[in-house]
Amino acid sequence: MSGTELTVTLSGATAADARAVVRVLEPAFGQAKEEPPTSEDVTVHTARFEHDPADRAAEPAAGGPGHLSGAVTVTVQGAPEAVSMARESLAHAFTAQDQGSVSGDQEQEWQLLLEP
């Protein structure tokens, strides 16, 4: 099966918060395509992962608790399987509240509010 892209967008996050979220997703998705964000001047952080189910475990990562400086809104977009895995990984690591989802023919988008 060919890989698909998973896009994660964070708002209300510091650079350290964005890096914490990226680190939680890396066990399930591998390294993000770009370096983790470092600038504190950025108001929206984006990370992209290449998701190939053949290369990764079928279960979401059971990482330890993540550390955030404040509430962070996260939007995860991609293939339904990748979005579900990302959502579960984030819910295992952070206190997460579902904020809703939108589904299309080939993609799904899910928004979560992560709290410290």
Score class of each variant (00 low, 15 high):
M1W: 03
S2Y: 07
L6S: 08
T7H: 01
V8L: 00
T9V: 11
L10M: 15
S11E: 15
A15P: 08
A16M: 13
D17T: 02
D17Y: 07
R19Q: 09
V21M: 11
V22K: 03
V24H: 05
E26L: 02
P27Q: 02
P27I: 09
A28E: 12
A28H: 08
A28T: 15
G30T: 08
K33Y: 05
E34R: 13
E34H: 12
E34Q: 09
S39R: 02
E40K: 10
D41V: 11
V42M: 12
V42K: 02
H45K: 05
H45Y: 15
E50F: 05
H51Y: 15
H51E: 08
P53F: 06
P53M: 10
P53E: 15
D55G: 12
R56K: 06
A57D: 15
A57S: 13
E59R: 13
E59F: 11
P60A: 13
A61P: 13
A62Q: 11
A62Y: 00
A62M: 07
A62C: 03
G63T: 15
G64P: 15
G64Y: 04
G64S: 09
P65H: 14
G66L: 01
L68M: 03
S69F: 04
V72D: 10
V72R: 14
T73F: 00
V74M: 08
V74C: 07
V74D: 07
V74W: 09
T75R: 13
Q77N: 08
G78V: 02
G78N: 05
A79Y: 06
A79M: 08
P80H: 09
V83K: 07
S84L: 14
S84I: 01
M85Y: 02
M85W: 03
E88G: 05
L90P: 00
A91P: 07
A91K: 06
H92C: 01
Q97I: 08
D98G: 04
Q99V: 00
Q99N: 09
G100H: 04
S101L: 09
S103M: 07
S103Y: 03
D105P: 04
D105K: 06
Q106P: 00
Q106A: 10
E109N: 04
E109I: 08
E109S: 14
W110S: 09
W110R: 13
L113Q: 12
L114T: 02
L114H: 00
E115C: 12
